[in-house]
Amino acid sequence: MRRSVLLALATLALSACGSKAEDPVEQIVVRKPGESAAAASTPVADDLLAKGKAAFAACSSCHAVVPGAAAGIGPNLHGVVGRKAGSLAGFAYSEAMTKSGITWSEAELNAFLANPAGKVPGTAMAAGRVADAERRTAVVAYLASLKN
C-alpha cells in the first residue's frame, strides 16, 4: 500500500513541472465593462421583428435559428418559410408532420401556431401554442426574417 502512495506522490511531483497555460490564440475586445456602446442598445420594442424575436425566446428552448445549428427538441427554424413541413434532414419529425403536405408560408405558420394539434393532429409539438394573435403575427414575421 505504501508503495502506491509514493508512486502517486512522484506522479504529482512530475505533473507540477508543466509550464503555464497558453495565452489566447485570438482576442477580440469589443469594449470595456461599464462602457456604453451603440451596439449594446436595446432593440426598439415596437418594432414587429423585435417583438417577434422577444416572443420567440420562449420557443428557443426547443428550436435553434442559427443556420446549421444542431436541432434541439424541435427542428432548426432557419429558413422555415418556404420549406416543406417535416423535410429537414436529420430531424425525427412525427409521422403526422411529414405527411401533412404543408409548405410553410406565413399564413400556414400562423394557423399552426394558433392551434398546433388542430392544424397537424399528431404533431410532436406539445407546447408552443401562441394564443395571442398579435404575438403570433410577430413571431411569424420574425421566423420569416430568418433566411440567408
Binding site: T42, K51, A57
Partner: peptide, 8 residues
C-alpha cells in the same frame, strides 16, 4: 428594468 425584452 432596462433589458432586452427577449432576455429570460
Amino acid at each position: 428594468v432596462e433589458a432586452d425584452p427577449a432576455m429570460p
